[in-house]
Design a protein around this nucleic acid. Structure first.
Length: 429
DNA sequence: TCTGGGGTCCTAGGACCC
DNA sequence: TCTGGGGTCCTAGGACCC
């Protein structure tokens, strides 16, 4: 039996956890540069027009009218709260798979003696997390990960279930699936749901009995795995040790558009610095770097609201002469890539860098004609990371990062980093 | 250069996730 | 004025091998 524990409106709930005056009020959290809505409280969801991903300027009227509270995304706080949530779950069962910042799968077999029932376990988890972290979560139980996902969703949608839903009998499963929209299933996106509807499949129950050959052909093996999981046959296992990432990316948009290659290069070196920090943190070296650059896809030709302005999108990948993880070494290739794709006559909205082709950090190869990784630079980078962790991001940085056009990022409604900075610790008056 | 059955590896792009 | 930022997996098709 699997359980899926998923926090309700996680970012909003974390904000409330540290600022109880927000409780009961409509609340939204906005992303980078205070632009788009990336989380909503139940009260905000209930207001027509407050949708995920909408830019805040489009709904300013609704925000004023309904006195919606706004917070800037505080990922430091959310990340730390997430770690606390996960370690709490580990007190209930040994096998926990952290699936995302706010959800985890648990393998709950073998704990029958400790709890009167699965729903008893679910209740205990809910109450503990509420008490210790002041966060509301829902718990779904099922014989496969997919059924646990379904159960979790039902627990969220039906308050009368008290936040816990157990799908442990064929009757419970088929009656749940009979009213469950296929497009809400884990792994069914826009495209697949259109194809399913075209052959008359509306519910998860109907998908269960679609012919395997059709599913495999139209939805690939992922669709087939989904169908088996709905039938109660596990095709996804619990993955406790999260594997290291295979790619690392940083590509925040500019606050405004930028025409100047020098400014873009400065931003790019900041993005690269972020990527390399993450790379070193997971003890990897990267072999390939990709740089991309694009214009604002929403921009219209002046005076012609119907006509998109001329767009430009380009990317370039470069294989490094040897795998490395230091910003200083990789930067010249990043700038070389940028130079090769930069075009005059456009204003750019976003540049980004993707690192890939990783090898473990203890891997050191020396090519016949090329030098190996620069050990001194790698050691130096480790020291820089430690100092920056202690004294704040970018306190030590490359000279090319000196002029960051996005500094400071607009975060007008930012809460404190209560749990990770001594100078921002929660004060009780 | 063509013939053909049998493979592997790599990459771009699609689809999906939170 | 203003439109998110990360990731994963799979497949088809090309290039190449014997």
């Amino acid at each position: 039996m699997f359980a899926l524990v998923d926090a309700n409106n996680f970012y909003c709930s974390v904000e409330r956890s540290f600022d109880p005056t927000l409780t009961g009020k409509p609340l939204v959290v906005v992303g980078n540069n205070d632009r788009c809505i990336i989380a909503r409280s139940a009260e905000a969801k209930a207001i027509e027009g407050i949708k995920m991903g909408v830019p805040i300027y489009q709904v300013q009227g609704l925000i004023d009218k309904h006195q919606i509270q706004v917070r800037s995304a505080n990922f430091t706080l959310y990340g730390d709260t997430s770690s606390r949530l996960m370690s709490l779950l580990n007190q209930f069962v040994d096998d926990v798979e952290v699936y995302s910042i706010d959800e985890a799968f648990l393998l709950v077999d073998g704990y029958e003696g400790l709890y009167p029932s699965y729903s008893g376990l679910g209740k205990a988890i809910r109450e503990t997390i509420q008490k210790w972290l002041r966060l509301p979560v829902c718990v779904g139980f099922g014989a496969t990960k997919t059924l646990a996902k379904v159960a979790n969703r039902l627990a969220k949608k039906n308050p009368e279930l008290g936040g816990v839903c157990v799908l442990d009998s064929e009757e419970a499963i088929s009656s749940a699936l009979a009213t469950f929209d296929v497009s809400d299933l884990w792994g069914v996106g826009y495209k697949s749901s259109r194809k399913l509807r075209a052959i008359g499949v509306q519910t998860a129950l109907q998908l269960r009995s679609v012919n395997d050959e059709w599913i495999n052909r139209v939805m690939t093996v992922n669709g087939l795995r989904l169908a088996y999981e709905l039938r109660g046959m596990p095709r996804k296992i619990l993955e406790v040790d999260s594997p290291p990432k295979q790619s690392i990316c940083s590509c925040p948009s500019f606050r405004d558009v930028v025409p100047d290659q020098k400014i873009i290069a400065d931003a790019l070196s900041s993005h690269l610095a972020r990527c390399c920090e993450k790379l070193r943190k997971q003890d990897s070296l990267c072999g390939t770097i990709t740089v991309f650059l694009h214009t604002n896809k929403f921009r219209r030709t002046p005076g012609r609201t119907d006509l998109p302005s001329k767009q430009y999108y380009a990317s370039r990948s470069i294989d490094l002469p040897h795998p490395t993880s230091t910003t200083a070494e990789i930067l010249r290739y990043a700038l070389e890539a940028l130079d090769s794709i930069f075009a005059f006559g456009y204003t750019f909205k976003k540049t980004g860098v993707i690192l890939s082709n990783f090898v473990p950090a203890d891997y050191r190869s020396r090519g016949i004609f090329t030098e190996g990784p620069n050990e001194r630079l790698i050691k130096l980078a480790g020291v820089v990371d430690k100092l920056n962790y202690r004294f704040g991001q970018d306190k030590l940085r490359l000279a090319s990062q000196m002029f960051n056009p996005d500094w400071p990022m607009k975060r007008e409604w930012l809460s404190k980093r209560y749990t990770t900075r001594w100078d921002e610790i929660l004060v009780v008056n």
